[in-house]
Amino acid sequence: MTELKCHVGIGPLVEGTALVADDNFSARYDLDRIKGIFSRPQHKLVGQSYVDKILVLNTSKGGVASAWMLNEMKTRGIAPKAILFNAANTILAQGAALADLTMCDRFADGDITKLINTGDTLRVDPAQGLVTIITRF
């Protein structure tokens, strides 16, 4: 098991499967929130389902709407399980706080999109600022 230290985050401890891209994130710009998939043609995860995944991305982009949207998505059961960023912006953190969605950023060991692979099983503990790779894909 590999442990990755990060800043203290938001939300509960969760375990799940990683979906990774060296790309950014906005719920408004990038998602089809009806189908539960990435919809922006230029996004590296276009066409893939984000539902119940632990998203691992570079940073969050403009668009304050994501702060409401995370809660709205979670209520309908089409939210990611957690989101890990190299650097979150304020909006996604605020959205995670409202939705009680797990979110962490600022990893000590470098670019998180390179340290975790799609399909890896992760445990995310925001209170401790710790992400554990339980199994490698």
Partner: peptide, 15 residues
């Protein structure tokens, strides 16, 4: 405050 209803959905309007 940004509060367009497309973003809010029913869940956040209830909130």
């Amino acid at each position: 405050m940004m509060a367009d209803t497309e973003s809010l959905g029913n869940a956040c309007v209830e909130f």
